Computed example of a mutant assay.
Amino acid sequence: MRLRNNPEALDYLLSQEGLVYINPTDVKGKWHEIFGNDNPIFIEIGMGKGDFILENAKRYPDKNFIGIEKYSTVLTIAVKKAKNDEIPSNLRYLKEDAVRLNEVFDDEEIDGIFLNFSDPWPKKRHTKRRLTYKSFLDVYKKLIKDQGHLVFKTDNRGLFEYSLSSFANYGLTFEDICLDLHHSEGYDDNIQTEYERKFSPRGPIYRADVVVDKEKIRG
């Protein structure tokens, strides 16, 4: 269920200069300058209420993280949640649509991408809206460094099967596939999203870790 729109959300986000970037036009190629270091940069596309990206920033201070969300109301919830805590210096937020990411990130500016519980768009006519569709993979390929990782989690088996096929057809290299994340060994470091905590009791969580080996990509 979508959250009711908060008409004051955008004004709040505009007040968070330096922490939140709203459809920016002047940040491409400048993210290391924004963070003030040369540490690797990881982004989460469609971060929702922000639990995952915030915990990553806390757990890995030697890496930079950007949470990306296109809905002002949802992004506001994430930012306020972080501000109730101590916001790590290695965390920024970006209000942007995934289709425009190559306008806000330079080629190979990103070290890794997280896709967590994206909208499955189950109807065939909506296939092109899935964040693992070829046109989105084309965007990710440009942003991410060679040998960078794309990590994908979902509770939707149909979307997972589709995504595995999409990754394979594109020429991405599979590092790891897990069919039941919360009941498999070797994933003790898994950071859960709010959605994941709520819905994992209802069924398995699927996870795929793929490598962007640019010599093998067919896209």
Rank of each mutant, 00 (worst) to 15 (best):
S166Y: 05
N169M: 09
F199C: 01
L172A: 08
L150D: 01
Y162P: 12
D146W: 01
Y133H: 15
L150N: 02
E194G: 00
K198D: 05
E196Y: 03
L181P: 06
Q192A: 10
G148Y: 13
S184C: 13
D180H: 10
I177W: 07
Y133S: 15
T193P: 07
I144S: 06
E196Q: 03
A168V: 05
D180A: 08
T154F: 07
D188Y: 13
D138A: 00
L159G: 06
E161I: 10
Y140L: 09
I191S: 07
G203P: 00
T173N: 10
I144V: 14
R202S: 06
F152G: 07
Y187H: 15
R202K: 12
I144E: 04
G186N: 06
E194N: 07
Y133K: 13
S135V: 05
S166V: 03
S166M: 11
F174M: 11
F152C: 05
V139P: 04
S163T: 09
D138L: 01
F160D: 05
L143S: 09
K134H: 04
Y195N: 02
K141L: 15
E196I: 06
D155Q: 01
N190R: 03
V139Y: 03
Y133A: 15
V139D: 02
K142R: 11
Q192D: 11
D138I: 00
V151S: 07
G186Q: 09
R130H: 05
R130F: 06
D189L: 05
N169K: 14
F174W: 03
T154A: 10
S184P: 04
K141Y: 14
F199S: 02
Y195H: 03
N169P: 03
A168H: 10
S135Y: 02
E175I: 13
S163Y: 01
T173A: 08
T173Q: 11
E161Q: 10
E196C: 03
T193C: 05
P201S: 01
L143T: 02
A168C: 05
D146I: 00
G203I: 01
I191R: 06
E196P: 03
K141V: 12
A168K: 13
D138H: 00
D176C: 15
E161R: 08
D188P: 10
D155A: 01
Y195L: 02
